[in-house]
Design a protein around this nucleic acid. Sequence first.
DNA 1: CGTCTGACAATAG
DNA 2: ACTATTGCCAGAC
Length: 111
Amino acid sequence: METKRDHSFFEQVYQLVRQIPEGRVTSYGAIARALGNAGSSRMVGWAMRTAHMAKPPVPAHRVVNRIGMLSGKRAFGSSTLMQQLLENEGVEVVDDRVVNFAAVFWAPSTG
DNA sequence: CGTCTGACAATAG
DNA sequence: ACTATTGCCAGAC
């Protein structure tokens, strides 16, 4: 039984991203799938872009693409801010890419 | 109300 | 293995 949410797709993404623990990262596709919108991975990224104006701060810096690349670093204002945030949590980032991505990968779960 | 864009992903060449 | 193209669909203009 799926818990129907009246909130928009964006808010569903926000809530999921907020569940990402520190030192962990996830991919857009993983989030899209968890929301049942597999294939709409672009929407996830689009939601993150507007996530900066979400009420509770969304750790968008913990969300990267499938290869662990900081594709959204541009949205943080500073291209290095996203990397610094990740490194601050213990996530090693080199060349705008998460080191040992599979090890720090966090599997999203709606429930 | 129609069109374009977008922090991706998967497939084909 | 790498590059190019298509699909996805909801927000922004």
